[in-house]
Computed example of a mutant assay.
Amino acid sequence: MRVLVTGGTGKVGGAVVRAALAAGHEVRALVRDLDRAGMDLPPGVELVPGDVTNPSSLADACDGCEIVYNAMGVPEQWLADPSLFERVNVRGSVNLTRAAAATGVIRMVHTSTIDVFDAPPGGHFDETNLAVRAKSTAYERSKQQAERAVLATAGAMEVVFANSATVYGLGTTGNASMETQMFRPVLRGLLPAVPSGGFGVVFTEGLAQGHLLAAERGRSGERYILCDEHATVMHLARTVAKVAGRGRAPVITIPTPVMTAMAVAGEAVAKITRRPPPIARCQLQYLLWNATPDSSKAQRELGWHPTSLSEGIRRTITETGLREA
């Protein structure tokens, strides 16, 4: 089967590319930079130049494909220019959906997020808890809008949503990634204290398998939460140290008022430097939401299997070079 993957040089898209190749598919990747993609993506991937924000570049990429995995997007919670969320996550998804539907693509798997769901702080949620009101951050609102826009644009093409928890694992690492903000500092003994709260996590390679299963078995129009488990920030950091057998686990939980003040101050500086703050208010809000996602539907309907936290962390450390960090 010939498939197209967007966002192939990113963490999620890259994992989907690897999984699709391993499954024997003909994999085509939409890329903005052929030279960079040639270094980042494995051999055997057909590279097609294009950009989801440029509709005229998408028809050729979609032509002849049966499945499109829309794994591109702006995942950061904070940006100096927040309009980028709408431009890429929403309009880019609409452009791709139109091109895919017009060229006869059978099914699209759209990478979304658990942020589109609602629950009280510390509560539990599943796919029935779709938020009916606009969420409080530009990133979250863009993901809500993208889901609605994709459904409205798809026509007869089938669409399945893969609603991902916080992603960690193999592939590229950004400023806000768990590898940068937690794994590396813990391994270097530089994270004595962490915020309170927690979130759902999912390992890249398991998330990619969830995408392939959604393409094969998912019901059109349905959402599937892909989350290995919920963990507190403290538990995550301590597990990194335990699995690695070195580093220093944090022992102090930073009080929420202190974290709030740090986030406000960090954003004030970020407005001047145009660089992401150590933690943004929206990131802190996500931690304090501390809600537990339920992936039972994906396990039941797709046959998806979560990855244990210790196994995912072990592979991340050993296969990304973090052991030498």
Rank of each mutant, 00 (worst) to 15 (best):
271 K>E: 10
291 A>P: 01
290 N>H: 04
285 Q>V: 07
298 A>S: 15
319 E>C: 10
271 K>I: 01
269 V>H: 03
294 D>A: 00
270 A>M: 05
293 P>Q: 06
319 E>S: 13
291 A>H: 00
287 L>Y: 14
316 T>L: 14
313 I>E: 11
288 L>D: 10
310 S>C: 06
323 R>A: 12
305 H>Q: 14
276 P>Q: 13
284 L>A: 15
310 S>T: 15
303 G>V: 06
302 L>Q: 06
285 Q>E: 15
297 K>Y: 00
302 L>W: 05
299 Q>A: 09
272 I>A: 12
287 L>I: 06
288 L>M: 13
277 P>V: 11
310 S>D: 14
320 T>H: 08
295 S>A: 11
318 T>F: 07
310 S>A: 15
282 C>F: 08
297 K>W: 01
278 P>H: 04
324 E>I: 04
301 E>Y: 02
297 K>R: 13
315 R>Y: 03
317 I>G: 03
318 T>A: 14
298 A>R: 09
304 W>Y: 07
321 G>H: 09
322 L>E: 10
290 N>K: 03
303 G>N: 08
295 S>Y: 00
312 G>D: 02
325 A>D: 12
315 R>N: 09
292 T>Q: 14
289 W>S: 01
318 T>M: 13
292 T>E: 08
274 R>A: 15
277 P>W: 07
323 R>G: 03
295 S>R: 00
317 I>W: 02
313 I>N: 13
286 Y>V: 10
325 A>I: 10
314 R>T: 11
280 A>N: 12
273 T>M: 09
288 L>I: 10
290 N>I: 00
280 A>K: 08
279 I>V: 10
285 Q>P: 11
319 E>F: 08
302 L>S: 10
308 S>P: 05
301 E>R: 04
307 T>K: 04
313 I>G: 12
299 Q>C: 12
307 T>E: 11
316 T>K: 07
322 L>F: 09
313 I>V: 15
325 A>H: 05
312 G>Q: 03
306 P>Y: 02
304 W>T: 02
325 A>F: 06
306 P>V: 01
289 W>G: 00
304 W>L: 02
296 S>F: 04
293 P>R: 01
271 K>G: 14
316 T>Y: 04
278 P>L: 08
284 L>E: 12
297 K>E: 01
317 I>F: 01
307 T>M: 10
270 A>N: 07
315 R>D: 12
272 I>R: 12
319 E>I: 05
308 S>A: 07
276 P>G: 14
281 R>C: 12
294 D>H: 00
324 E>K: 10
281 R>S: 13
304 W>P: 03
285 Q>Y: 09
314 R>D: 12
281 R>D: 11
298 A>E: 07
320 T>M: 11
324 E>F: 08
277 P>G: 10
322 L>V: 05
325 A>K: 04
320 T>N: 11
316 T>F: 09
313 I>K: 13
309 L>T: 01
322 L>S: 05
293 P>E: 02
325 A>Q: 06
274 R>H: 13
291 A>V: 02
313 I>W: 07
283 Q>V: 10
302 L>G: 10
278 P>V: 07
304 W>S: 01
274 R>V: 13
306 P>R: 02
324 E>L: 12
281 R>G: 13
312 G>H: 03
275 R>Y: 08
305 H>W: 06
301 E>S: 04
298 A>G: 13
282 C>R: 03
294 D>T: 00
292 T>H: 13
299 Q>D: 02
297 K>H: 00
313 I>Q: 11
301 E>Q: 09
304 W>E: 02
